[in-house]
Amino acid sequence: MNRITAGRRHPLARYAVLLLALGLLGGFYTLAAPTSERADAAIASGRADDVAEGRKLFEQSCSSCHGLNAEGTANGPTLVGVGAAAVDFQVSSGRMPLANPGAQAPRKPTAPWVNDDTIRQLGAYIQSLGGGPVAPGPEQVDPAKGDKAKGGELFRANCIQCHNFVGSGGALTQGKYAPPLHDATPTQIYEAMITGPQAMPVFNDSIITPEQKRDMIAYIVGVREEPNPGGAGLGRIGPVTEGLVAWIVGISLLALAAIWITAKKRQAHQ
């Protein structure tokens, strides 16, 4: 019992659970929609009660901003045509439902009602409204199957200008930002590329192929799990933290050393 509790806190536990969940989710899709690339087929084979359940969930949690029929309001865009992939990305990363309006929806812990089933149902409902990209299968996002070096070249060409060279994130205009990729699951990375959430542009499958996307995922996951051979990573954001360390650690330690070398010893009063 204790071992399980301790194991739950292990840093890799999150990934393990997520991978398990994704595996299950993906497995469902593979069973339910053997040709998962095709949106139509997904709708066709999506169970009718999923759509109905999804609609209920939508009305409870999403419709206040996105409109009763997902047609969009002043507070939220239309969701017709965004596809189940967008639903999975936004809801599984906790961005939706939105807690506070702001420049950008942050990643946060998911809402209590969110689980694999509800995401699937909600996705089925949105998919039924106007199609759109669907969530990728586990094969498609398996980092082990990608080529890191090729993915790295694409990552540097298309991603790092916003997300930084290892995906530590960066600033955009007017309070918007490119979020760090540290917590994004391979599926979420894939979904973000095909759906273009918020300010992020779209990288559709006809230009950056699914295999190439898997290469990029392999690179992103590989590099973020790679240890820092040179010591603490200092946030992996480049020279800013290095400069801070040089002053705060380096110069301070050396000033202390100088003080020790030159200090007058307290005179002992006998």
Partner: peptide, 22 residues
Amino acid sequence: VVEGTGAPIRAADFNSPGGILS
């Protein structure tokens, strides 16, 4: 051509509004 892969770009494939490519 696409930076990183060298593949030429068919206009019909670059069809998602909001898309960008180096």
